[in-house]
Design a protein around this nucleic acid. Structure first.
Length: 475
RNA sequence: GGCGACAUAGCCAAGCGGUAAGGCCGGGGUCUGCAAAACCCCUAUUCCCCAGUUCGAUUCUGGGUGUCGCCUCCA
């Protein structure tokens, strides 16, 4: 039984799909005005796993993720650079996909953009006006929060408290300081579209209501995003969507919010200028390491970013990879002893535990621990075979590997292949050097063998001997 | 000021009423001509503090202390 923590009720609830065997997911995407930093990437990595989990569990998944490509910051950046707003959004959407590809995040089913849904947005705003939830002022359209009785239900606030502590400068034209813009009248130098209220552009929030309605319907299963979107963004989406549909039970059933990635315990954010972009980190670590780093912590917890943490993730991931290689090799060798029955049983148990962990509010950290548990079991058997001549059971290893791969696939590991950096010359040269050294070793000429190894090391190449021959790698 | 989250070994991190998963680091060993790599084993009588509820609490309740977040653009 799948249980999920719902921000709306502040409880873990049993997940009941709207339609049996199907799940609809809307995750708030990015405003493309910058390269994504690792904090931005977190929700997409998390949801990528959730989606893989649902698919593996037999659900038909519809996963929508928007791009807010009409926005103040995009416009500002475009004006700074003297290019069009769409040049900026196109550039950073491409950057976003580049980062997601590196992290092994599979594509959503649809990536709707604000700029391609202006008529839908206008229609929704008009409906809100018609129903009395919105009013126009000088070409702007505002949502009247007082008209929506349940305003604040997601974020656990009420209008009185918010007004008491409001730090925003009050726009005197608003009926209530908390009213927010559905449509903004055009200003010089801004992109704009014709509307019943004059030229203008959509406010923030309305696009998600409109596009989720269009692609997932009035009611759907999951809505996700970072915790910072709970208020005002998701609160406002609820107000818009439920007012529009006239049904306070409509819209998303389960609201999932991920915690922040921090640096020195402080939220990573563009405004604090304490962020690391995915692309920057990729210069030091493979995307897979970042992904593993993110998933080793439960999605709702804060996650402190540092080089140290990434190094740890890399070491742990390397351990998992080694075991997979063992299982792979042994599953293909000849061997029909049934010594690995315990291994197969262990694998079956690991698989059950793994799924149970994910069914408990997508506890990837716990799930990954079962990957390590199976890894250890595989290593023990491999050692018995290598060191004690135990007969082995290829079928047992094949079974363990199948389970191992299934778990890894949901977490999204082992998918990226290291790009060979060979220029066509290094490989044959190294082969030659290694074979010369091997001859020296066979002649017990340790002085020469060690000299070759030491000098290569000084040149940045490490030689590692093994029963099946020497390996080399750049440091 | 309002609302909320979190505090578990050297570091990271699960668990959230039945007696502390996992990873990293460190220590010991196996393998190796020597190394390296890899693997195996070991590493918290104890879960921020103080009360309370309970046969029993890291887990629940109350009160502290500390850290972080939202209330303004933010994943």
């Amino acid at each position: 039984m799948l249980k999920v923590y719902n921000t709306l009720t502040r409880e873990k609830e049993e997940f009941k799909p709207l339609k049996k065997g199907e799940v609809g997911i809307y995750v708030c995407g990015v405003t493309p005005y910058n390269d994504p930093h690792i904090g931005n990437a977190r929700p997409f990595v998390v949801w990528d796993v959730i989606r893989r989990f649902f698919k593996k569990s037999g659900y038909k998944v519809k996963y929508i993720q928007n791009f807010t490509d009409v926005d103040d910051k995009i416009i500002r950046k475009a004006n700074e650079e003297g290019v069009s707003w769409s040049d900026i959004s196109d550039r950073y959407i491409a950057s976003y996909f580049e980062a997601m590809d590196a992290l092994g995040v599979r594509r959503a089913d649809i990536y709707p953009r604000v700029s391609e849904h202006i008529p839908d947005i206008i229609a929704m705003v008009q409906t809100l006006i018609d129903k009395g939830y919105a009013y126009t002022v000088d070409g702007d359209v505002y949502y009247s929060v007082e008209k929506f009785a349940e305003y604040g239900k997601l974020s656990g606030r009420n209008l009185e408290d918010m007004q008491a502590g409001a730090r925003v400068e009050v726009d005197e034209r608003k009926q209530n300081p908390m009213d927010f813009a559905l449509w903004k009248a055009a200003k010089p130098g801004e992109p704009s579209w014709e509307s019943p209220w004059g030229k203008g552009r959509p406010g923030w929030h309305i696009e998600c209501s409109t596009m989720s309605l269009k692609y997932l319907g009035k009611t759907f299963d999951f809505h996700g995003g970072g915790s910072d979107l709970i208020f005002p963004h998701h609160e406002n989406e609820i107000a818009q969507s439920q007012a529009c549909c006239g049904d306070t039970k409509s819209f998303a059933h389960y609201w999932l919010h991920n915690g922040f990635i921090t640096i020195h315990e402080e939220k990573m954010s563009k405004s604090k200028n304490n962020f690391f972009t995915v692309q920057d980190i990729l210069k030091q670590y493979p995307g897979e390491v970042m992904r593993f780093f993110i998933l080793q912590t439960h999605y709702r917890s804060p996650l402190d970013f540092s080089d140290e943490r990434l190094k740890e993730a890399q070491a742990g991931l390397a351990r998992l990879k080694h075991s997979r290689e063992y299982a792979e090799v042994l599953s293909k060798r000849q061997g029909d002893a049934s010594t690995a029955q315990a291994l197969a049983a262990m694998a079956a148990q690991a698989k059950r535990d793994f799924y149970a962990a994910l069914e408990d509010d997508f506890n990837t950290a716990l799930a990954i621990s079962y990957l390590f548990a199976l890894s250890k079991e595989i290593n023990i058997y491999s050692n018995e075979i290598a060191n004690n001549g135990l007969d082995f059971d290829a079928a047992g290893f094949a079974e363990a590997k199948a389970v191992y791969d299934e778990m890894a696939e949901i977490i999204g590991l082992f998918e990226t292949q290291a790009a060979p950096v060979d220029d066509g010359l290094v490989e044959p040269l190294m082969k030659l050097i290694i074979s010369i050294r091997q001859e020296a070793r066979q002649a017990k000429n340790w002085a020469l063998a060690d000299k070759i190894r030491d000098e290569l090391k000084a040149a940045g190449i490490v030689i590692e001997d093994s029963p099946t021959g020497a390996r080399w790698k750049k440091v």
